[in-house]
Amino acid sequence: MKIKKGWIPIFLLPAVILFLLIYAVPLVMVFVTSLFDYRLTGQGMTFIGFDNYVRLFHDPDFAKALFNTVIWIFIQCIAHVALGTFIALILYKKPKGWKFVRTAYMIPNIISNAAIGMIFLNIFNPQFGIINSVLKAVGLEHLTHNWLMDSSTAFPSVTLIWVLFAGYTTTLVLAQALSIDESVLEAAKVDGATPFQTDLFVVLPLLKKIIGTTMVMAATYMLQMFDLIYITTNGGPGKTTTNLPLLLYGVYKGENNYGYANTIGVFIVVIGVVAMTVINKALKVNDEDY
């Protein structure tokens, strides 16, 4: 096929410019500025080597944010993905209304997190929120809490805002499960496997790759989680529900310490790479042999 080669760079140019401006240049900047004392714009930058990193490892807020981030990644990769996969394993047998369940379950995932945050801020509202209203209605008044503002309940309450909504996981795992060859399932049945055994020993292993993918997505999502926490607890009370992006935002906007904020940014990027490698290794997501 004869193609005027001159058009190739022109067709690539917009995408490459977007990539450079919003991904590549900021990525380089985040690494470079983490080595500088870089505060308010216009005050210049001083090279300080790894001082920001030294501060990072002595910063109790960072320890707390890192701890929460890692815990949330674990919870999301295990509980959230397991729930989504479990629902997909029910739906792939196409019970009545399976498409409706898939659609309904996706809805919390496709509306904005700002709205979800506002909704849960009100669900947990101590005066008229659903949870306290129901507790009062059934005579469990003593169990009512200011869920998001009480340090003993804030962490699990915030977690609840995202952990149950596994619509993406369900949709992806379901799509893969529906593509499994009928004959494989028939063969298992002929060999005398119960439906439960078939799911556990035949279907699940065939879904390993997509489950790995959803785990990577869940980990990346939690690593970047900002809006839901910002709107509901803003990391509080104290630092109970803070995570790395929230800490970064606080250092960036509150302290105007850009060098240190970007050091946290470097850490987020590094954790992203580590998490992805670990999950891929653990599940051998890149295996080609099945």
């Binding site: 991904y23 240049v25 900021p26 990525l27 900047m29 985040v30 500025t33 990346t220 690593l223 970047q224 900002f226 992006p245 970064l248 935002y249 960036y252 850009y258 904020a261 970007n262 946290i264 940014g265 470097v266 850490f267 987020i268 990027v269 992203g272």
Partner: peptide, 9 residues
């Protein structure tokens, strides 16, 4: 690339 890491840049 986790984009929230790049807020300031």
């Amino acid at each position: 690339i986790p984009m929230t890491a790049l807020l300031h840049p």
